[in-house]
């Protein structure tokens, strides 16, 4: 049997079982996969022979432990891919689903995990300073690029040692800051959380900011 048909079948049975809380019959599976019942019938028979499903006498299909595991895995791949295609790449949901149906059979578990991690926290712009990965090298505006009186929002801090004291003082991503004083050498006094903080130019240059809306 075609491995992708096997995966499709297991995935469909897995999802149908989960949604309706009972074992589906051949007809339901066929309509879920939009395939003729005959093809499903023979597929399920093969699966039963392989020990992936149990084909009950009442015509319903139940997954065995191995079938259950494979089915779940494929379902997760589908979900992740569909989400990635629609949320991150901006495809519309139904074509994302169709595409995911094809890709899910070829994609490795590792790729899926990496896509999953990526989607939980897409690389924010300020990750630049963490260096080694360095996929985003576009120059970001730092505190020193703005002038006295500007209202800004912190988007990140470059470099970790310094970050600790800055974090304690409230310089965290998303926080509002206002430049109260800027000297010729770019030493700054910023107001953050109601407190004035004096910063050396090199410290100020390590704080990435955006103009607040």
């Amino acid at each position: 049997m075609d491995p992708s048909l096997r995966e499709d079948l297991l995935e469909a049975i897995c999802l149908l079982t989960r949604d309706s809380q009972r074992s589906p019959g051949i007809r339901e599976i066929a309509s879920a996969l939009d395939k003729p019942e005959g093809e499903i019938q023979s597929g399920v028979t093969t699966l039963a022979a392989d020990g992936d499903v149990i084909y009950e006498n009442d015509g319903t299909v139940t997954l065995t432990a191995t079938g259950q595991e494979l089915g779940k895995r494929v379902a997760k791949k589908h979900e992740t891919l569909q989400c990635f295609l629609s949320e991150i790449l901006g495809m519309d949901r139904s074509s994302a689903s169709d595409e995911a149906c094809v890709l899910e059979h070829a994609v490795s578990d590792d790729t899926i995990n990496r896509i999953g991690t990526y989607m939980q926290s897409p690389p924010r712009r300020w990750s630049r300073g963490q260096g080694a990965e360095g996929h985003d090298t576009s120059p970001l505006p730092a505190l020193t690029d703005f002038n006295e009186g500007d209202n800004l929002i912190v988007s990140g801090i470059l470099g970790r040692e310094r970050a600790s004291r800055l974090l304690d003082l409230g310089v965290v991503p998303g926080e509002r800051v206002r430049i109260k004083r800027k000297l010729a050498n770019h030493a700054l006094v910023v107001q953050i959380k109601g407190c004035d903080v004096a910063l050396s130019p090199e410290v100020a240059a390590s704080i990435c900011v955006e103009r607040s809306g």
Binding site: E161, R162, R165, L166, L169, A187, V189, C195, D196, V197, A198, L199, S200, P201, E202, V203
Partner: peptide, 11 residues
């Protein structure tokens, strides 16, 4: 290396 100044300006 140099660390730089980060000082809260007390009122």
């Amino acid at each position: 290396e140099q660390f730089g100044m980060i000082v809260e300006m007390t009122p």
